[in-house]
Amino acid sequence: MIYHGNRIKVREGADPVRVEEALESLHEQGRAIPAVRSFIVGRESGTDFDWGAIFIFDDLDGYWEYLVHPAHTRTERLGLPLMAKFETYDITDDDVPDFGAKVAELQKRKFKTDPELVKLLADLPSHTGSSAVAQDG
């Protein structure tokens, strides 16, 4: 299984209606993407982040399905402009050789097909983690 985490700090002054729309879109991608086995979206506490989300997939094929699904793309378009800080991470309990490199390759592949996403990520004040690794390539 792969556990894909997202941590979000909302920009100061972001329109609360747009923030709610983006959060609902996170929930919707969990419901709509067939590869998502389970998910949670909620407030984060004890950190500098406001919100967190975790999506669970069976394998890297499911991860790719998640990355390119229209529900995920919609969430990116709605949410990224509202963020002051964004961090992603991945955890697996499978013995996948070079897991991090394989995730980075999926991210790079996605970026090659989506220049608008690359621009949205480049405009973020802070972006770290597994989805940021691919920005170098």
Rank of each mutant, 00 (worst) to 15 (best):
12 E>P: 10
37 R>L: 15
17 V>P: 03
13 G>M: 11
26 L>E: 00
30 G>S: 05
29 Q>K: 12
15 D>G: 04
21 E>W: 10
30 G>T: 09
33 I>V: 15
22 A>K: 01
22 A>M: 06
29 Q>N: 08
45 S>V: 15
14 A>D: 03
36 V>G: 03
41 V>E: 05
23 L>S: 04
38 S>Y: 13
40 I>F: 15
39 F>I: 04
12 E>F: 12
28 E>D: 15
43 R>C: 01
30 G>K: 04
32 A>S: 11
39 F>A: 02
34 P>C: 14
22 A>I: 03
13 G>Q: 10
29 Q>S: 12
12 E>D: 14
18 R>P: 05
14 A>T: 07
43 R>Y: 02
34 P>I: 05
33 I>N: 02
46 G>E: 08
27 H>W: 11
39 F>E: 03
28 E>T: 15
41 V>N: 01
30 G>D: 04
17 V>H: 15
33 I>P: 00
41 V>W: 00
40 I>C: 09
24 E>L: 09
26 L>R: 06
15 D>M: 04
24 E>W: 13
36 V>M: 04
27 H>D: 05
15 D>H: 03
12 E>M: 09
34 P>L: 10
45 S>N: 13
12 E>C: 07
41 V>G: 01
32 A>D: 11
23 L>K: 07
20 E>M: 05
35 A>L: 12
27 H>G: 01
15 D>Y: 09
41 V>I: 07
24 E>N: 15
30 G>N: 07
43 R>P: 02
41 V>Y: 04
45 S>G: 12
17 V>K: 15
23 L>V: 02
23 L>T: 00
40 I>R: 13
32 A>H: 06
46 G>F: 07
28 E>N: 12
31 R>F: 13
30 G>Q: 01
22 A>F: 03
21 E>A: 15
16 P>C: 08
18 R>K: 14
24 E>C: 06
15 D>R: 04
36 V>K: 01
30 G>I: 06
39 F>C: 02
40 I>T: 15
41 V>A: 01
21 E>F: 07
19 V>P: 01
24 E>M: 14
20 E>K: 08
24 E>T: 12
23 L>F: 08
24 E>V: 10
37 R>H: 08
26 L>C: 09
29 Q>F: 13
35 A>Y: 13
22 A>Y: 00
42 G>H: 02
12 E>W: 06
30 G>R: 02
37 R>G: 07
29 Q>Y: 14
34 P>E: 13
32 A>L: 12
30 G>M: 05
33 I>Q: 06
43 R>G: 02
25 S>Q: 02
31 R>A: 09
17 V>L: 14
26 L>G: 02
31 R>M: 12
23 L>D: 02
42 G>I: 05
31 R>K: 11
36 V>N: 03
46 G>I: 08
15 D>A: 04
28 E>S: 04
35 A>M: 10
44 E>Q: 13
18 R>H: 11
29 Q>L: 13
30 G>H: 05
42 G>E: 05
21 E>R: 11
38 S>N: 12
